[in-house]
Design a protein around this nucleic acid. Sequence first.
DNA 1: GTGTGTGAAGGGTTTCACAGCA
DNA 2: TGCTGTGAAACCCTTCACACAC
Lengths: 206, 206
Amino acid sequence: MKKISDSTIRRLSRYYRSLDQLIKKNMETVSSDQLAEMDGITSAQVRKDLSFFGTFGKRGLGYNTKRLQSQIGEILGLHKNWRVAVVGAGNIGRALVKYEEFSKQGFQICLVMDADPEKIGTSVGDLITRDTRNLKALIKREKINIAIIAVTANAAQKVADQLVEAGIKAILNFAPISIKTPPEVRVKSENTAIEIEALSYFLTQK
Amino acid sequence: MKKISDSTIRRLSRYYRSLDQLIKKNMETVSSDQLAEMDGITSAQVRKDLSFFGTFGKRGLGYNTKRLQSQIGEILGLHKNWRVAVVGAGNIGRALVKYEEFSKQGFQICLVMDADPEKIGTSVGDLITRDTRNLKALIKREKINIAIIAVTANAAQKVADQLVEAGIKAILNFAPISIKTPPEVRVKSENTAIEIEALSYFLTQK
DNA sequence: GTGTGTGAAGGGTTTCACAGCA
DNA sequence: TGCTGTGAAACCCTTCACACAC
C-alpha cells in the first residue's frame, strides 16, 4: 500500500469528528467545501485526502455523511475495540483513564500501572492501579494493543523498553522526552509543553 | 522576520529539553550529531533549524550546552513568565493545572474557570475554580496571556469567542473540535483522540 | 449546473554535500 | 582533522484547474 502521510491520517480523524456533528444535525450529505470550512482547510485537500483511499462521493452531489463517516472509521480501524494500558497513575494518567473521547471510539482502557507503592492498589475510574513490576505479564494477560506512557521523563525510556519487550507495537508518549524504540514500533508523542512553547514563541515575535 | 515553520519551533523545544539532560550530566559541549541522535532526527536538520536564528556553534567543536539552551530559551520567549488561564475544571483541566512541566518553564497558571455550579468554588491545586460567566473580567484582572480550553466539544467555540473578546491572542485547545478565531489569534490544538487514532490506523495497516 | 476526482504545478521542508573555520 | 553553516537538490505536501459524472 502506498505510504499515506501522517497529516492525511490526522485530517481523517478530524473529518470523522466533523461528520459526527453533521450527522447529529441530520444532514444527509456534505460537500468537500463544507467539510473544509469546518476544519479550516481547503476543499482540494479534503478531496485529495479521501482520494488516497477510494472514491466516496458523487459528482455534483457530495458525500453521504453517515457512509463517509463509517468508511473513514474503517480506514482508521476504529471498529476494532483496541485494548489500551496506561502506565503512570499521576495527574495525566488518571485524566486519560477517565477521558470519554477514548471509550467513545472503541479505545478501551483496561489497565493502569504505576511504580509508586502509594499509588498501587488505589482505584482510578473502574480500574485498580497495578504494579509496573508486573508490566510484561499484565500487558500479555490483558491482551493490550496500545500503551500510553504517562510517567516522568526519567522513567519513560525504561517503561518504553519494557513495553516493547512485552510485544507492544503502538505507544502514545506523554513524557516530555523522545523515546527510542525498534522501527516496527510506532510512537506518537503528545507534549503539551511543546505546544505552549510554540504559543510563547508566537507571542514573543509580535 | 522570515517566516519560521512550525516544525522548526517544535524541534527547538525538543532541543531545549535534550540540552537539559546534557547539562544535568555536566556535558559542556554537544555536536549537532549528538543532539540529532537524542531526538531521532538528522544532524543537518538540527543545524538548519538553528541557522534560521543565528550562528551558535563553533566549527570543529560543536555547541556550548548551557549557552545554546539559554539562546533557544530566548528565541522561544521562555524567560517571560507567561500568565495562563485554564477554562474547564474537568479531568484534563485539573491535570493541566498541576502539570509541573509548565511552571518549570515559566508558564504560570493563575486562573481556573468552569461553568458548572458544582465545580465553581472548589479548589484545584492552589487555585479556586471561578465562574466562566466572569471570564472576560477575570482574564483582564489576572492579566492572562495564554488560555487553555479544556471544555467539551459543544462549549469550546463559545469559550473561544469569549477569550478572543477578552483580548487573548494565544489559545491551546484540548477540545476535540476545530475552533475558529480571527487571524491575529494563534490556536494550537492538542487532541489525544487524534493521536491514538493514528496508532489505530498504523496497527490496522500491518 | 454542481461538485468530485486527479494530473500537474507550486511551495515548503528536509537532506545532501561541501566550503570554511577552529 | 572535526564539525558547523549553508546553497543546491531532492522530496513531499498542498493547491490549482479542469475533465467528467451526476
